[in-house]
Design a binder for these strands. Sequence first.
DNA 1: ATTGCTGCAAAACGTTTGCACCTAT
DNA 2: ATAGGTGCAAACGTTTTGCAGCAAT
Lengths: 154, 154
Amino acid sequence: MKNKQAADIFKDFLKNGKNRITPERFEVMDAALEYEGHFGADDLFILMKTQKSRVSRATVYNTLELLVQCNLLIKRNFGENLTRYESNFKKQRHDHLICIDCGKIVEFINPKIKSLPEEICSELGYTVESYSFNIFARCKNSKSCKYYLEHKKD
Amino acid sequence: MKNKQAADIFKDFLKNGKNRITPERFEVMDAALEYEGHFGADDLFILMKTQKSRVSRATVYNTLELLVQCNLLIKRNFGENLTRYESNFKKQRHDHLICIDCGKIVEFINPKIKSLPEEICSELGYTVESYSFNIFARCKNSKSCKYYLEHKKD
DNA sequence: ATTGCTGCAAAACGTTTGCACCTAT
DNA sequence: ATAGGTGCAAACGTTTTGCAGCAAT
């Protein structure tokens, strides 16, 4: 167990939901929280496989969902028909800018966004559960896209 | 041809890109622009099949992409690993609120969002291409979710 | 005549499911 | 003991691809 604090949160969540506490689930939790940046469920499964883990694909998918439910992970979608996850443990809320040339994802925090979902929902008679705000852009000076611009074949 | 004005836009776009002008493409264009609300590529394909159209799945997928490129359609993704399209012909830009109980999609326009992507991008050295702002929420008074609440099996 | 587009079927991709076995409670 | 979780493989739904024939230029 690499992250005791997160493990406690997860354990409590599992108990309260009458979900069993299994070693596989904590193995997935550790791998997920240590993953740098955003990852797909299958990315994680393959990484774990290369590290000789014995957890199955089904368990990875299932456990990631549980980790989202207890807020240790956040689910993202950057419009590629692929569910991505990122750690939400000790992180503050942020949004994303995705470079449409090189795929790079930049995280940003803008205070103006904060109250918007709430505001809009109360106008419409809804209660916010979550929101997603993604900007798709290209870098102005091609610095960030240097790799892409040098290697793209067109 | 049901929408001559859109057809002209599409035709110009195809010519400029050295894409061929084929009856199938206009058949897809008509069906897409007439579709009420948001639809997946396969939804459209199946609808066209039931209407005895002979266009193939591949042509539908390919043509929808072309229609996005010439701004007659907008591509959306509401976090279900499914690409959705909606008409952008003579419509103003708007964002979406998705009810996480019944799946209903509400379109809204909020002036505060308008300048945000631009603002954030210029700070970070990027040029906006597009953005997506989705709010996931539940209705306060269960009016909108009435159907769901009555029929859900849990 | 040349390309590009089409229809079809098959493959690819991420994800979910069914099932027999196993294990935390 | 027993619900629930696991691993595995097969199924699933959406999307992409390969290919032979066809049609717009």
